[in-house]
């Protein structure tokens, strides 16, 4: 077992509890022992960097210092939290705001990983491959990586920010078909869904249409904001445009659990708004 610090982020205590449940099982099967950061606070999200530059760095800075005291690398399942922590890491290490660095003396002795990258290193993929019990044959999936773990690369340290491939490789390792498509890192609109759903609906419709045109029967994501916008509002988007979309949206951790033959995961999939079970039945996977 490898010990790492988990920074879950606020939505994994709420609407993305299903993501949390699935990643905990997947990690334990893969020998990753997640230890939740004690007394973590919100990363500030879009609201903070839209309203107050200093606080937008101060919130993540506090978490980074707490984590560094613990001494373990941090794994972050939320793309936006990851981005905010990485942004702050760079600011602290470059000492862009001396008063911030003074208050939060982060030395950079720990690394910050986004969960997807952490679980898809070549070694991890080998481990995953050896644990696959039920290959996900019949699932044809487009991988949707979203923005925040990729851009900007000088913050995220992403290797391949315009055309990431790690989730595609994972999908293939799990026995499903990975469909290459052009919208891997296009924006879903994220938190605009609350105040400007009209914007999000336009962006997400474009994703559905392309996924369907390329004959995908599912979309796989690694970000709970992407999941919310693609899954939770699918019926509203259908109605808005007079279409009848039915395309299940999976977290990559859920697919890992399914391929590992974890029975609990099958039941948990019904916690999505778009029920993936009919698609899985069609593929003969359940």
């Amino acid at each position: 077992m490898v010990d790492v610090t988990l920074y879950p982020g606020c939505s994994l205590e709420g609407t993305a509890q299903d993501y949390r449940d699935s990643l905990e099982i997947a990690c334990s099967r893969l020998g990753v022992n997640l230890i939740e950061l004690e007394n973590w606070i919100c990363c500030g999200a879009t609201a903070a960097h839209s309203l107050d530059e200093f606080l937008a760095l101060e919130f993540p800075a506090r978490n980074l210092v707490l984590a560094e005291k613990r001494g373990l690398d941090v794994v972050v399942p939320c793309a936006l939290c990851f981005n905010r922590l990485k942004t702050t890491e760079k600011h602290l290490l470059k000492n862009t705001h001396p008063e911030l660095t003074k208050k939060y003396p982060f030395k950079g002795t720990i690394k910050i990983h986004d969960l997807l990258a952490y679980l898809t290193t070549p070694d991890m993929l080998k481990g995953i491959s050896s644990l696959v019990k039920k290959p996900l044959e019949g699932l044809k999936l487009v991988s949707y990586y979203g923005c925040m773990v990729n851009r900007p690369p000088r913050i995220t340290d992403a290797q391949n920010h315009e055309n990431p491939t790690q989730m595609d490789r994972l999908v293939e390792t799990l026995g499903a078909t990975a469909i290459d498509w052009p919208f891997k890192t296009d924006c879903c609109g994220a938190s605009h869904v609350v105040a400007r759903p009209d914007l999000v609906f336009v962006l997400v419709k474009k994703l559905y249409d392309r996924a369907i045109a390329q004959e995908a029967n599912g979309i796989v994501v690694s970000c709970q904001m992407c999941h919310a916008n693609l899954d939770m509002y699918q019926d509203q988007i259908s109605e808005y445009f007079g279409e009848r979309y039915h395309i299940p949206v999976f977290y990559f951790t859920e697919l890992i659990n399914l391929a590992f033959g974890d029975e609990r995961q099958i039941g948990w999939l019904s916690r999505h708004v778009v029920d993936p079970l009919p698609t899985l039945r069609e593929c003969g996977l359940i």
Binding site: G14, I41, T46, A47
Partner: peptide, 20 residues
Amino acid sequence: SYAFHRVFFENMLKNGRVHE
């Protein structure tokens, strides 16, 4: 959009974490 950022920000400042 501004209204949403404001309530999000204030909730975060008050409680440390955001309660959806």
